[in-house]
Every structure is written in C-alpha cells, then in structure tokens.
Nucleic acid binder design. Structure first.
Lengths: 351, 351
DNA sequence: CCGAATAATTTGATCGATCAAAATGGATCG
DNA sequence: CGATCCATTTTGATCGATCAAATTATTCGG
C-alpha cells in the first residue's frame, strides 16, 4: 500500500502550515474561506485521512464505545440484543463514533475487560446491557469515573442518581397496554405467563398485566403461571391455563419463547384463534405471525448516545454528572399486532 | 480519573530506562530475568497499561479487525451471523485482538467504510461475510492490498487464488450426510425445499441432496420445491410435497425458516412424526426441537483468525500472499439430531 | 589477564496529529 | 500616521510509545 499522506504533505501541497490543515478539519470556521477551499482541494486530491491513532494520542479521546456481548443464550430472546448491537453500530457511525465489541462470562470478567480497554485509551465510554439487581458493574464504573450508560434501569438503587445514566423500556406499560387492548377487543379473562419473581424486568411486566387485567385477587392468582423461560414451559403453562374450569380467553407472555409455546399448545388443543401476545418482537414472532410487544430499539440507542455524548453529532466528551440535563430515559414499547394468534398453517394459501 | 502512569513513570520507579520497560512488555526474552522481575513489579504496583494509541502510532498496527454487520433481516437465519460475531469477539480476545463493527447497506457503502477505517489506521484487517457471485468487495480489497479473509468462498472465481483467503462450510456435504442418514433410517423418498437457483450456497446444498437422495431424474424434479426463504413458503412447499400421489417421507430444507414452516405444516396435516431437517441450527430450531445442520462456527472463526494472523497468538501482521501455507479452509458441518420432527406440543409432559 | 564477542541496557529520533502561544496582516480610530 | 485590536496563520512543544543505533556490562577463549 502506498504511504498515506500526512498533514504535512497536505500543508505543503496547499502552501499553508500543518496547523491550518488541522484547523480546516477540526475548526473550519476560524479559517478564511479562500484558504479553506484550497486546503480542502489538496486534501481531496491527495486522498488525505487523519491518522486516528495519532489524533487520539494527542486529544486523549478515542471516540470509541465499548460493548460487551453477553454469553450466547440458547433462547430466542437473545435476538433483542443483537438488534441493539446493530442499531448501535448504525447510529454510532452517524456520529463518527466507533464501536468495539468484546465478550465476558460474568460481571467481574467484564470489568477486567473494561479496565483494560479504558486504561489503554482504546475506548472512552461503555454501554452496559442487561442490568440486574445489585449489579456490581454500576458501582465500579461510577467509582472509577468511567463514562457509561446502561440499557436497563438500576434495579434496587435510586433511579435518579445522576452518576448513573440509563435508558430503559417500560415493560410494565407495554404489557398493560397489550392487556387493555385484549380486553377492549372482548377478552374477559386474560391470562399471564411470566418468570419467577426476583426478576426486575419480569416483575415489571407482570405488574402491567395486574394493573390492566381487571381481575380480582383470586383470579390474579388463578390466571397467572410462573415458569422459567422456554418454549416447552410456555406450552405447558398454556395447557394449564386452558384446562381451567373457566379457561382464559387470551394469554400475554413475558417473552416470545413462552408465547411461541403457548401459541402452539393452543393450536394443538384446537384453539388456533386464541389471542397470544409475546414480548420482544423477535424474528420468530414475525415469522410465525405472533403478536408481540416491541422494544423501540432505535429510540433506545438514540437516547443512549445522546446521554453519552450530548445532542450534537460531534465527538463531545461525556460529562459524568451535570445537574441540568435529565440522566435517564424510559421509553414506551408498542404492541405489534399480527394474526394475533398462531394461524393454522394447514389452512393457509400458498404456492 | 487519576493520570495514568507512562513508561517513563515505570522506568523511574524501577530504576531503568523506558526502553527496558518497553522490552519487558514486548520482548521479555532479551531482558535479564532479574531486571524483568523488578520492572514487572513496578508495572503491577503502578497499575501501568500501555497506551494503545501511542503504540499503534509507532508500530503502525492497530491489532483491530473490522467486521461489517449486514442489514437486519427479518428472517430467522440472521442468527448465524450473530453467533459468528460472538465467537469472533471471543477468539479475537484470546489473541489480544480487538473487533470493531460497523454497518453498511451495500457493498459500495461497505467499501467506503473499509477505506475510511483502513486509511485512518483504525483497523488492519477485515473479515467479509456472506460473499456472493461477482462480489465487488473481493477485487477491491485485493487491489488495494487490504488484508482480509472472507467467510464464504469466492463464488465464480478461482477457489485457489492465494490473494483471497477464505473459510467456508461445506453445505453440500452437510446436506448429503443428513439425507444419507435419513435414508439409512428407512426413508425412501426424501424431499428437498430450497432456494431459487442462482444462489451459491443454495445450489451447493441442493447438490448435496441430489447426490445422496438416490432418486432418479424424474423424482429429483418431483421431490424438490424451489421457493424463497420464509416460514410460510416452507409450509406451502411441505404441503405440496405431502400431497403428491406418493408423498415424500422426510424433508430436508435449505434453512431453518423453511424447515420450521415445513414442520408445522406436517403437524397440521396430521404427520407430526415426519422427519424434517433444517440448516443453521438457529435458536428456533433448538427451541422447537427441530433437527438442523450446524455450521461449526468455532472452527470457522479459528480458521479465519489463523489465516489472517498465523498460528501464533501474537499480533502478527497478516501476509497477503505466501505460496506455502494453504489460503483457505472448507469445514464440514454436522447434523444436530433432535426429536427429528416437530413434537406435538399437546402431548408433552409439563408443569 | 586481555581483547573479542555477546548480552543487556540506554539514548536520540520518530510516528502524525493537536495544543498553546507567538507572529503576521489588515482594518479601525483617535 | 502610529497605536490597538481582531482575524488569520505559523511555530514550538507534546501526547506515549517503539525503533535504530549507541553504549555499557558480562562472558569466554587463549
């Protein structure tokens, strides 16, 4: 590969000093228009690109965001994070930020990586995903003054601590709305299949159902199944809900995996039209035609970057604790309605 | 954040020169053991970390791999690439390499990104995924002497051109083995659902079925359905194959999406035990209990990195065209057998 | 015990950019 | 007309590491 031109090369070609070239790139406003054009022409002609490492060395900014990929999960739900990663790469690019990924098996491992990347000035901000109760990462990052934003609210500690910027999706509202919508369309006994209780997100989603179900205390127990995540678990739970003396006439689930199982079980039991709603709007849901509550990842990512770098597209350095700007965003998901129930494939039109 | 110590700080603390500190880190073998230990102690005590950008500026190596994420697809199959990304992050980490991701909408867009990242010395090697016939990226990368490896063989041009290093999975062998296995277990009419023909991977997979199906020329036409990817398409195709005068008694598909549809259609038609095999072993397949041909992504990634950086874990610079080493790897996938057919959920045990 | 060969360590220069401060060129004004 | 101010451009220093070459320390054969 031919040697890349440097600022000096451009400077010489444009008959100016290196600093002027630098200014044309970084603060064009202070350069006289005439010279700016001349320098720009030289830049284009020579195909000059600033050397990222040199710039970073001087400015002490890497304009790079670190993101840890969770350990692979078997489940279907991992797809949400993949979409998040994708959107992040997309929007980061628009702001001239880079995204560097790494993996870690647990929180400690992740912190070790963060430390390494941060100390090496490889990265100047991190995005945490999937926060949990008593998450050790949060405290560590705050203590070491590492700029970060989490996708996931701080479970257990103050939601308003300005040192912890976060973005989250209001699962409770999502489930509440979906449940209300089912009731509005005529369902009177909407059941719920969700995860065991010490679960931040899970508990929120359940609360949404409780709020909108319109069931009395006894029925809230009756029409609720608690189970681990999984397709089989969803199917089993649905069979239970449908075998009650007064079976439920719609089911809302904490995940698409559960919903998929529930939907298939309903079909197997001869009720292909039973409305079933999942959560996360994964590719499976769309492939199967399952209604699902969709997290607005575009907005989530946009909010995340704004919290980290401000509104400007510029590579502004994050400021840990201001007292003016809000330091968190709670976004509202929306229900994606499909056949609303699993269509019996045997009766479909096709090739 | 406290100011990070530099080589000079460590040097002073250990009573040696900066270069010795540098040597302790980069070529410990040339430093006397006694001094090495002393320096190492100082490094640990001060918590020194080399400044990545400074090092990169001097060495002209970023030890960073660029990877483009495809546009999001609706389908289920996108999951393979996600797994690839994950494995890559994992194994790159073990070799002290970093992975930077970006998105692009088409090949040209991707090349623009590559050029920018490469010129800025942000990245010194790229991994291409999903190669296709007449892929313009390949020619460009070779011409501009950018080190790269593709996951996907060069469709249409020479497989042995040493300037194009690639890794791929032998889909033909995978489908052939799966088909053979079905026949060995008693199926005599194994059908195939695959994609329209000008498709590199698709044609290979079909060829595997042709080779092992044991069908005569007429039947090869009869028991084969060509369709776009998708669950509905898979279902429709399966209904066709099962409505023949002599229906097929097993189905192999080019993707899990097709297989999922086929499996559900079979169930709906009262044949829940019809063996159906998918491709890619996506999370859906495992969730549903669908047999599927699994790409050995661990090996794929390992081979990719080896082709790029050699066997050593070191950050060796890739060498574009050697004449000694092989410059490609074709790996064999393996069939993951599950219930081999879509179990009727209505008859499952459960909570 | 000396000088050559080798091992270990140190010094000076450099990678390519930006920062901070100094220098230049006009325009303005008493 | 000369001093002052602002806009624009240039110069010198620096970020933190590694390379290349020079220097010092050690080993070893004769």
């Amino acid at each position: 590969m031919a040697k890349m031109p440097t600022v000096d090369d451009v400077a010489e070609a444009a008959q100016v000093s290196r600093q002027t070239v630098s200014n044309v790139i970084n603060s064009p406003s202070i350069v006289r228009e005439q010279t700016r054009a001349r320098v720009q022409e030289a830049i284009d002609r020579l195909g000059y690109r600033p050397h990222a490492s040199a710039r970073r060395l001087r400015t002490r900014q890497s304009s790079t965001i670190g993101l840890r990929l969770d350990p692979l999960r078997d489940g279907i739900s991992g797809a949400v994070l993949d979409r998040f990663v994708h959107k992040l790469a997309e929007q980061a690019d628009e702001r001239d930020l880079r995204v560097m990924i790494f993996t870690a098996n647990d929180a400690d491992d992740e912190l070790a990586h963060i430390r390494r990347l941060r100390d090496g000035s490889d990265i100047d901000a991190f995005i945490l995903i999937a926060t949990f109760h008593g998450d050790p990462r949060i405290a560590w990052l705050i203590e070491h003054d590492v700029p970060f934003v989490s996708f996931g609210r701080p479970w257990g500690s103050s939601l308003e601590d300005p040192r912890h910027r976060w973005v989250d999706v209001d699962g409770r509202a999502g489930v509440r709305d979906a449940t209300a919508q089912l009731r509005a369309s005529g369902c009177s006994r909407v059941g719920y299949i969700g995860w065991p209780s010490p679960s931040g997100t899970g508990d929120e989603r359940r609360a949404g159902w409780v709020e909108a179900s319109g069931l009395d205390t006894d029925d809230l127990v009756t029409y609720q199944v608690v189970t681990e995540d999984g397709v089989d678990q969803g199917a089993a739970s649905a069979r239970h809900l449908l075998s009650l003396r007064e079976p439920c006439d719609a089911i809302v689930c904490a995940s698409d995996s559960l919903a998929l199982g529930a939907s298939m079980a309903a079909t197997a039991l001869g009720q292909p039209d039973l409305p079933v709603v999942g959560f996360d709007n994964t590719p499976v849901a769309s492939a199967i035609g399952l209604s699902s509550i969709d997290q607005p990842l575009d907005e989530v990512v946009a909010a995340t970057l704004t919290l980290l770098f401000g509104d400007t597209g510029d590579t502004v350095r994050p400021n840990p604790d201001s007292n003016e700007q809000p330091t968190n965003r709670l976004l509202v998901p929306r229900l994606v309605e499909r056949r609303s129930t699993h269509r019996a494939f045997g009766e479909t039109t096709g090739a």
